[in-house]
Structures are given as structure tokens and as C-alpha cells.
């Protein structure tokens, strides 16, 4: 076991980790931040996406030790301290961009990374960017719509309620 320390959602957090401890295990089991999920073991579903030093990564495919000293953001840090949802979270609720909620943390974190790089993505760009985030419930329609809305774009072009 080695002690590792990282900044998680703005707070310094430390804990013991083995060499093999994955970042997602450290977040969930050691720090109790269970909002980040594990949906596969081949690095494809994206339920585990968090930001490390401002970049979206799959926390199931990164060792906790690799994040020693890093600045980590998770779904738990996205809303304001008073609980007010951020623009992406609010758009997901407004446009029904989630159903069972399991892929949602990863979707929100990927969406945040996308909008940072590309503040006004097209529908095609959003769909392409979500290549590594699998949702089994929504058919993606309302996720795409929510991300467009969060970027301040008109979502009338995307049909349905």
C-alpha cells in the first residue's frame, strides 16, 4: 500500500492504494464517491469518465497511482455547493437526457469536456464525441438534445418532446 493524495472536486483527499488500485476504485471505495460507475471492463462504456487535470479519462482504465498529485473532478463536484445544478446537469433534466441514471455521470463529464473544447458543437460532433459513452436507455436522442441545449443552441431542430 502506498499513500496517494489528489485534489478531488477542489478538496485534498488522501488514501492508501495498491499498485493495482484503479482510479475508479480509489474514488468509489476509498473516498466513498460512488457517483462514478463501472459499466464494463474493456474501457468502452464510459460510465466511469472523470476529469484528471482537466482532461476526460476513463477512471476504470487509469491507475490511482497515476493520479497521485492530480486535480480530479467527478460528478459529485459538478453542482454548486448549494445543490444548484450546473448548465449541463440542468439541461439533462430539462430534456430528459437520462433514464436509469447509471451512464449519466460519465455522460455529464464527457459533455463537460466536449463543451470546454467545442462550445457550440453540431449534432454530428456531439454524437461522434460520445463514441466512448454507452447509454442503453435513452437512444441518445435526448442526451444529444441536452448537450446542445447546454451549449446555448436551439434544440428545436431535434424533434420530439
Amino acid at each position: 500500500m502506498t499513500k496517494i493524495t489528489m485534489t478531488v472536486n477542489g478538496k485534498t483527499r488522501s488514501g492508501d492504494a495498491e499498485g493495482r488500485t484503479l482510479l475508479v476504485q480509489f474514488l468509489r471505495d476509498t473516498l466513498g464517491l460512488t457517483g462514478t460507475h463501472v459499466g464494463c471492463d474493456t474501457s468502452q462504456c464510459g460510465a466511469c469518465v472523470v476529469h484528471v487535470n482537466g482532461k476526460a479519462v476513463k477512471s476504470c482504465t487509469m491507475l490511482a497511482a497515476e493520479a497521485d498529485g492530480a486535480d480530479v473532478s467527478t460528478i459529485e463536484g459538478q453542482a454548486a455547493p448549494d445543490g444548484t445544478l450546473n448548465a449541463i446537469q440542468q439541461a439533462f433534466q430539462d430534456h430528459h437526457g437520462l433514464q436509469c441514471g447509471f451512464c449519466t455521470p460519465g455522460m455529464v463529464m464527457s459533455a463537460a469536456a466536449l463543451l470546454k473544447d467545442n462550445p457550440k458543437p453540431t449534432e454530428t460532433e456531439i454524437r461522434h464525441y460520445l463514441e466512448g459513452n454507452i447509454c442503453r436507455c435513452t437512444g441518445y436522442h435526448n442526451i444529444v438534445k441536452a448537450i446542445m441545449a447546454a451549449s446555448g443552441q436551439d434544440v428545436g431542430a431535434i424533434a420530439a418532446e
Binding site: T74, E76, F92, Q93, D94, G101, P105, V108, E161
Partner: peptide
């Protein structure tokens, strides 16, 4: 009415309680 879902809040903020979250 297309009422917004109340359950979304916990899922969107990472505080849902899925079975694997139970220890």
C-alpha cells in the same frame, strides 16, 4: 404534463443509491 423527473436530481449529482454503492 411533461413534468420533469424528480429522480434526476440524485442521478445527476452522483448520489443515486445503486446496489454496488451499498457497503
Amino acid at each position: 404534463d411533461s413534468t420533469k423527473r424528480r429522480e434526476d436530481i440524485r442521478f445527476l449529482t452522483g448520489v443515486g443509491n445503486y446496489t454496488d454503492d451499498i457497503n
